[in-house]
Amino acid sequence: MAAVTEPNHVARTTWRYALLIAVAMIFVFPILFMVVSSLKPDAQLLRDTSSIAAFLPVGDISLDNYFGAFRRAPVGLFIFNSIFITLVTVLISLFLCSLAAFAFAYLEFRGKAVILSIIIATLIIPFETIAIPMLMVVNSLPFIGANGVQWGWLNTYHVQMVPFLADALTIFLFVQYFKDLPKELIEAARLDGASWFQVYRLVIVPIAGPVFATAAILKFLVMYNQYLWPLMVTQSEQVRPVMVGLQYFFQLNTAWGEVMAYLSMITIPVLAFYLVLQRAFIASIASTGIKG
């Protein structure tokens, strides 16, 4: 093991760690600043920004900003709305996109390549360019709910979910993953008597954990961070998500401490979701059972 104690190696390892720590700090410090600031009164918060104290929980520390945030806006409702909209969309989207990808990866049908190309081409269209036409479409769509048929989807949960149930990136992720799975597994299942849906449900889904976790994380972030669309389609507080709720803190005089408290609170679901799936991601990396 002489190589390990070699001076060069030690120096290289030190540098590598120093670089990693520097990169980690770039990512960690904004979050640290947010959490620490949420505990400080506005005056101290602004004063501390010019020193290292901005990152340290020193001075007049309290949870007042959190209470203030709850007084200023229905924080709990916003968080619930966001989590509800996001989870429902993620779940349905994983199902629909993986099914579509399954068809693109394994079934033979006319025009398959063209349809997939068109879907992937939609990746280059910025959402902002289609936001207004989409608004006009959803405003004139019917919806059958508890109150019978209603026209126009504005001010509802589903207007924030349905347009995002299928997207090119998620389909593309699944297609790429499915194409790399051994074709023999699908053929063996077909010979064993499985229908296409059974192949999907009993063979493909159980071994596609990593791509489901990845797609879920990406979709969760996109949905949880939605701002423009919910701002356009919701006027009622009852259905608004967290990002639109942030506006409540920027009226007349901005209370920076409360902003930081609000941001700290709405970050928790994202971190929790990520950590849960991170575990699922690692647990689902299984041997493919192909070859020795």
Partner: peptide
């Protein structure tokens, strides 16, 4: 019934 070169066992 077919036996594949790669065995094609369901890994899960």
């Amino acid at each position: 019934a077919m036996v594949f070169q790669s065995y094609a066992l369901y890994p899960h």
